Computed example of a mutant assay.
Amino acid sequence: MRQRAFLMLRYGLIVGKFAPLHLGHEALINFARQHCDQLLLLSYTSQVLSHSTLRRQWLKAAFPWAQVCVLDAARLASWPELQLPDDCASDNVQREFVRQVLLRLGFRPDRVFSSESYGPGFAAYLSTATHPVQHIAFDPDRQQFPISATQIRNNPQQAKQWLSARVYQDFMLPDIQRIALLGGESSGKSTLAKRLADEFATLYAAEYGRELWQAKDGQLEYADLLVIAQTQIQREQQLQTQARQYLFCDTTPLSTLFYSQAMFAKVNPQLLQLAQRTYSFTFLLAPDFAFVQDGTRQGDAFRQRQHLWHEQQLIKRGVAYTLLTGTIAQRVQQVIAVLRM
């Protein structure tokens, strides 16, 4: 009888605040990748839940191959019986909380990675609860990366030395929530963005693609689509430094992805990555009022096609969104209800 060889997968776990995600964290995660087949990055903290969206973005962008779980208010609300421990709670309280989270996620690590002194005890605790779990240390004396997130938060002047360009840019910007407005042509996005900015006494990011289309008399080239997405993001980042609480975004790189497919039947890989950009809230505007032709639009059939595509993409990507219907005034009230609930 022939023997069958079974590949034993190695499941790794890293737990941290990642607030912010610094180069020491990134080195630890890349080290762990060499020693496991599947890696879960679990992030939680009782102090900076408001930054959960940023932490999720940083981890997913830098480590798309890893499983990322950032415990934000929405996720914790789905587990009402699970109490988020205070950051100052004892080691055993933290360990039991993580064990409970792992049970709910259905993830059974056989190794944990850390640069902390608590690592061996953490692994031993998980071992008593399930199956043997090994601790693998990385740079425990902090000789390679003599930094901590606490030091960076307390002294942001040294942040640039220890943060990637993306994290540094996000970390140094005000904690502004970006609001995505999506929809087909003549769905009222631009008007709604302006009205909402007035309502909340803040700013909105106008649609750069439309401006470029007009500047080039409608003759866009394939390479323009990537430029549009990059410029739109740059515009958002610049406006975030001046906005108050919310920045309303009249389109996102996801819409630019649609136009690239519709106009050229292909997409630049960099644009695909930019289309993963996430927002604090996403609103999809229904094509439920008369189509207005302003000389730049293709028609109502195209508008319906755009709406359906955006709807399918949001569902496929697991992005929560609110469908806005009715007049502009009614849509303003619908957005207010969501943001102020």
Score class of each variant (00 low, 15 high):
Ser164Asp: 08
Leu82Gly: 03
Thr128Pro: 07
Cys36Val: 04
Ala265Thr: 09
Arg244Gln: 15
Ala74Val: 12
Gln47Trp: 02
Leu284Met: 09
Tyr321Met: 10
Ser190Cys: 11
Thr256Ser: 09
Ala337Trp: 08
Trp213Glu: 01
Lys17Phe: 07
Thr282Ala: 09
Phe6Ala: 13
Val70Glu: 01
Arg33Lys: 13
Asn92Leu: 14
Arg10Gln: 13
Ala74Thr: 12
Trp58Asn: 05
Val292Asp: 14
Lys216Asn: 08
Gly12Leu: 02
Tyr125Lys: 08
Thr296Asn: 11
Leu23Lys: 14
Tyr125Gln: 05
Gln158Ala: 08
Ala62Tyr: 10
Val167Tyr: 00
Gly12Lys: 03
His35Trp: 11
Thr251Leu: 05
Val335Asn: 05
Gln276Gly: 12
Tyr321Thr: 04
Val267Asp: 07
Cys36Ser: 01
Ala159Thr: 12
Thr325Ile: 09
Gln240Cys: 15
Leu308Gln: 15
Ala290Gln: 14
Arg178Met: 10
Pro64Glu: 01
Gln144His: 12
Glu185Asn: 06
Val70Met: 03
Asp170Phe: 02
Asn30Ala: 12
Gln293Met: 14
Ala337Tyr: 09
Asp198Ala: 15
Tyr44Lys: 05
Gln100Lys: 15
Tyr246Glu: 05
Gln214Pro: 06
Ala137Ile: 06
Asp91His: 15
Gln157Ala: 15
Gln238Cys: 10
Lys189Ile: 05
Ser164Lys: 08
Gln242Cys: 10
Gly121Gln: 11
Ile136Met: 15
Gly209Ile: 02
Arg2Leu: 13
Pro287Met: 03
Thr296Ile: 06
Leu76Arg: 06
Ala275Pro: 08
Thr282Pro: 08
Tyr259Asn: 06
Val335His: 04
Cys69Asp: 02
Pro156Phe: 03
Phe31Gln: 02
Arg56Met: 10
Val70Arg: 01
Ile315Cys: 11
Ser46Thr: 02
Arg111Tyr: 07
Lys60Asp: 02
Arg111Asn: 00
Leu257Lys: 00
Leu82Ala: 06
Gln214Met: 13
Tyr208Ile: 03
Asp91Ser: 14
Leu84Trp: 00
Gln273Asn: 09
Arg297Asp: 04
Gly318Trp: 05
Pro120Leu: 11
Ala193Thr: 02
Val101Ala: 04
Gln270Pro: 08
Val267Gln: 05
Asp175Ala: 15
Val70Ser: 03
Glu26Trp: 01
Ala193Gly: 07
Ala5Thr: 14
Leu203Arg: 07
Phe281Arg: 15
Val335Ala: 03
Arg166Gln: 11
Ala243Gln: 04
Ser190Ile: 00
Leu7Lys: 11
Ala320Leu: 13
Ser148Asn: 12
Phe31Asn: 05
Leu339Val: 06
Gly218Val: 07
Asp175Gly: 10
Leu323Arg: 13
Phe200Val: 02
Ile336His: 13
Leu163Tyr: 04
Gln161Ala: 14
Arg244Ala: 12
Trp58Ala: 10
Ala19Asp: 10
Ser187Leu: 03
Ile14Pro: 00
Tyr222Glu: 13
Gln230Leu: 11
Ala77Asp: 10
Asp86Tyr: 06
Leu284Thr: 03
Ser117Asn: 13
Gln3Asp: 14
